[in-house]
């Protein structure tokens, strides 16, 4: 065979000159465009959302409300009210308890509670984010371990295949998100509080995608590859370790990303009734007291946590598949 091995060809063309050119060629510009569009839409949405509250405070803002009667205004549509009170528009983005806080209000709140508050201060979001993250991570690890073990059992044992899979599917038809607060309260009454109950709900939500993905991954080797190991008289354990597990890696990481996000949702819902620490508790407190800005900033921190988790799994995935010689090419 004269044909040489195909090496990695260096990417054609020189490095881009200048930041702008690179930004235009890469994903930066599209991403910025989308963010700008979302922000514009958000600011625009604040006008009808907050107009009633702002017009109610017309005196304080130094203009006259039209119509003057509060009852009359309550029955009016938002856009009509905007048209009658153009003077109110500049004030819709700075209300104290807006229906929809403006982006810069949320940003300022996050800055104040994340950067300007000590990490161990319960008034700061870092404290709450850490509480949520630790329960999420514990639940995710439990769910991942359980999911992988169940998948291995299902692939190797016909009885488990027939019995466990239906139960796993049935388990996901229980609206755990709806009954999670009850589960927390029940567990608390038997003395189980703190990290573990939340982690259990997170695990309950995250094991399922791992089971489904791993069963598919462990079954991905074709008949020929299994026959090859039979010709070596390989034991089931050797087949698992040398063929099925390595072959399932791409499937595993995909499921783990879904599982991590589900874990976070489970933890936040589990925190709702505790009234103590965690982003879920923070969300509930915010909604009790009409602190919409606080709710939104907690939401953004939660979204950031989810991105962090999925990003971390992606990094492990990249490193693992590269080591296995299976990285995207």
């Amino acid at each position: 065979m004269a044909d040489a091995a195909l090496g990695h060809a260096p990417r054609a063309g020189g490095a881009g000159t200048g930041l702008l050119r690179r930004a235009l060629a890469g994903t930066t510009l599209p991403v910025l465009t989308v963010i700008a569009a979302i922000l514009a839409l958000w600011y625009a949405a604040c006008i009808p959302m907050n107009i009633h509250g702002t017009v109610n405070m017309a005196r304080a803002h130094g203009f006259e409300a039209v119509p003057a009667s509060r009852g009359e205004r309550r029955n009016m549509g938002a856009f009509e009210l905007v048209a009658l009170n153009p003077a109110a528009i500049p004030h819709v983005w700075s209300a104290e308890k807006p229906r929809l806080p403006a982006p810069h209000q949320v940003g300022a709140e996050i800055w104040r509670t994340v950067a300007l508050t000590a990490p161990n201060d319960p008034r700061g979001l870092i404290y709450h984010a850490w509480v949520t993250l630790s329960a999420t991570a514990l639940g995710f690890l439990i769910g991942m371990g359980l999911g992988i073990l169940l998948a291995i059992g299902i692939v190797h044992n016909r009885a488990m295949d027939l019995s466990v899979m239906p139960w796993a599917i049935a388990s996901q038809t229980i609206p755990i998100l709806a009954i999670a607060p009850m589960v927390i309260v029940v567990l608390a009454s038997v003395g189980l509080t703190g990290l573990l109950p939340k982690a259990l709900i997170a695990a309950y939500l995250s094991f399922f995608p791992v089971v489904v993905g791993m069963v598919k991954g462990l079954r991905s080797p074709d008949a020929m590859q299994l026959d090859l190991l039979r010709t070596y008289s390989a034991s089931p354990m050797q087949v698992l370790l040398r063929l099925r597990l390595p072959a399932s890696m791409p499937y595993l990481f995909t499921s783990l990303k879904i599982g991590a996000a589900a874990s976070l949702v489970g933890t936040i819902v589990g925190e709702l009734p505790t009234g103590g620490a965690g982003l879920g508790a923070r969300l509930l407190a915010g909604s009790y007291f009409g602190q919409t800005i606080q709710i939104w900033s907690a939401l953004f921190v939660a979204a950031f946590l989810a991105a962090l988790l999925v990003g971390a799994i992606g990094a492990v995935q990249g490193a693992t598949l590269r080591r296995m010689g299976m990285a995207a090419r």
């Binding site: 020929m224 590859q225 026959d227 090859l228 063929l243 890696m249 296995m324 010689g325």
Partner: peptide
């Protein structure tokens, strides 16, 4: 015996 299949069937991760 050693067995050679129709496809090489090499493990891509090795």
């Amino acid at each position: 015996y050693g067995y050679v299949f129709q496809a090489a069937g090499l493990y891509p991760w090795r």
